[in-house]
Write a protein that binds this DNA or RNA. Structure first.
Lengths: 133, 133, 133, 133
DNA sequence: GTGGTCTAGACCACA
DNA sequence: GTGGTCTAGACCACA
């Protein structure tokens, strides 16, 4: 697993792991049932503290991205289509989008460029890969 | 100045101020040369710690959004069109966009919805208001 | 013996076995003197680690649910009515009940619903089946 | 705040804190907006590690029981009536109830006693205290 | 070997 | 002063 962690970032390492893991699942680099490295393996590979990896894994499990089977290891979870997002979650993401668009427009990035980025990213990540149908 | 600050949010208050200030400039609620309240005035108006306002103003000044003129006060800065963004800045914003799109797709928000949001927000904030041409 | 084991659950597998075994006895699916599979048989049938079954059997024996007779095998134990529970045991179970009721009320499950569940479950499991009278 | 922590219990200390905190909110010992002790205060009062208290507070915040205001402290959250529980959550709690009832019946606790306990506990904790109406 | 809990202690951003 | 992150390391239950 290739993680690209930046310890200088203001985003905590455990959050970087959570996000990149979700990215890999969206990109179908991982499929449901795939075994992912143990906390100890990954922490020694990334040269970070096991507790940091553990925190990331716990958050991923809470979000239903991975599943832990006692004594056997950790696996990418089956994703159910029924996943229903709340109004609140949607609101929060729209706000994030707004924030990014204001920042981008402010420094002079053209609307067309932003729209193009969005389309490219949606082509890459839009849809629901790995969802049980 | 109407700020909508949420102390319960995990976004630092100084960052909320910075962002809303930029939003107001983008919406042309403020024009260059407009005087804005002093740190003391604003902090007592918003009932927050002066250090917080001070930090926000420092960041806004660093980004060239406002200017302080000794003995006269603080003003919205003139924006020049020639403002050129760096590759690095663009990269960072594209990454933010990517992050939001992954999260949104992950919880099942349709690509069409995300695209619609983007268009709406670009209509509202796209362009370069207040820029000296 | 039909066990419904869920390795993804955070309840240890040996505990799931213990509990389902007791449930089967309460439902009179088993009667005293019935022979139950050996550790080896059950572990290979359920495709789990023999140590896990062994731990479950030890706990069941400790609780007087099953009995091992050297050279003959393992059997459902005779239950005597005189089984007297201690204040401590009762206290512990009342606490568990309290915990569940607090959690349920907290997320907004109606008192009536909780009461109905209790009545249904008592109809299904209340009483002392298989007890020697 | 009176916590009754048992380090010998198999229930982690942070979980005991979470549960007892919810109990106190249900009993209206705390009301929304009430300030609760800081992580440092509580950890020194309970003579446990700050990280353990921190973990409990983070879980309580995730569940919407408390709110953190940066630099100001932690407060009991306003509870909204709209709290909607999922089928899955209800299922899990019914299972817990089932488990407790089987255990209780098994050791010979009368159905009437269990029903009485339930009614007493519902009188004490049923309903939605502190909910914004 | 696997993950979970807990302690001890450092460092940092925020207000 | 407040909480959040991270490291280091011990101990434990489970399989």
């Amino acid at each position: 697993m290739n993680f690209n962690l930046n310890p200088r970032s203001h985003v905590p390492i455990w959050e970087q792991i959570v996000h990149q893991m979700k990215e890999m699942v969206m990109k179908e680099i991982f499929s449901p049932q795939d075994k992912i490295p143990s906390v100890r393996e990954l922490s020694s590979q990334l040269v970070i503290n096991p507790n940091t990896v553990s925190k990331a894994y716990q958050e991923l499990e809470r979000q239903g991205v991975i599943e832990t089977i006692r004594g056997k290891g950790t696996f990418v979870a089956e994703r159910s289509v029924e996943v229903q997002f709340s109004e609140q979650q949607a609101e929060k993401l729209r706000d994030e989008l707004k924030r990014t668009i204001i920042e981008a427009s402010y420094i002079g990035i053209e609307s067309d460029m932003i729209l193009q980025w969005t389309k490219e990213l949606l082509d890459e990540f839009g849809g629901e890969p790995n969802a049980k149908r």
